[in-house]
Design a protein around this nucleic acid. Structure first.
Lengths: 150, 150
DNA sequence: GTGTGCACAAGTGGGAAAAAGTGGTTTCTA
DNA sequence: TAGAAACCACTTTTTCCCACTTGTGCACAC
């Protein structure tokens, strides 16, 4: 199962195409033959999520099965299912980000691709840097986290 | 079983016709030979629901059978059954949205079509964007959802 | 050990062909 | 007679491919 680490600065061209860095491309080739699913992130950060297809197929049924009398479940379904776009890379290893996702995450030219283990996150560089500044570490933690020793 | 994903910006013309995006059209051709049912959504969001006919025929008897001593059940019946319109696409892959549904969901020129697995949702673009902004992620969650790791 | 240059790989941009979307006109039907 | 359906022709967008530019790493020489 793919193990994506590290961050990469990348550029999106005028047509909305972005070249996956070669290092990451290798990882994707291995875990999913280059077939990925791009979707919106559901928490308060407006970034995109990049899943290798097999990983997405684990998640998708779980999301579809959520009881949709709950508002929070409908939200998750609308965001994750409603934005999911299966993608394949072109001959130069690029993907075309759909316009709706581009505007959801406020993607312009300069982007950051952030490895998160099983998936990757795709941010507008501006928002990523802003998040680094704002985000603070004195929120509530789950117990598993309190026990960590870094 | 159709699997509709992703969001698409589409335009309705002056006659109330809207072109189903080609990607979605394929999915509809496969699951229902292009025969769909368009109806109103019953939750607080005024959007329309697009069902492949076989999927609708699974749902319809269940709605009809709801015990209608309950106000909420009557509401569901009036909205879903009372607005259901079977549709077929014209030679260019377009459907004509009935005026009553158009006004129910406040559809004007710019629309969004949102894949939701078995069905699709059709929103006024304005309302969809507003919903994206307002909707927050700290509502009650069903237990299945708390356990999710995205 | 350091610097220079070469070669290959990665990233970028543009253009042409094909497909999708749009608008209007005519015909049919209620 | 008005509205909807079918049809047709035009315009725009998308997709695919090819060629160019940039960057990186390695080797060799100084």
């Amino acid at each position: 199962m793919g193990n994506f680490l590290g961050s990469h600065a990348i550029n999106m061209d005028a047509k909305g195409r972005l070249a996956i860095p070669a290092k990451v491309r290798e990882g994707l080739a291995q875990t999913c033959g280059g077939r990925i699913v791009l979707t919106a992130n559901a928490d308060e950060e407006r970034c995109l999520l990049v899943y290798p297809e097999p990983e997405w197929e684990v998640l998708r049924p779980k999301i579809e099965a959520l009881p949709n009398m709950y508002k929070s479940a409908r939200r998750l379904q609308r965001l994750l299912l409603g934005n999911a776009a299966p993608m394949e890379m072109d001959s130069a290893g690029r993907i075309l980000v759909p316009p709706t996702l581009r505007s959801y995450a406020h993607l312009e030219k300069k982007l950051m691709l952030i490895g998160q283990g099983k998936k990757l996150e795709l941010w507008s560089e501006e928002r990523w840097l802003a998040w680094l500044d704002e985000s603070s570490c004195d929120e509530d933690m789950p117990p598993e986290m309190e026990a960590l020793s870094l």
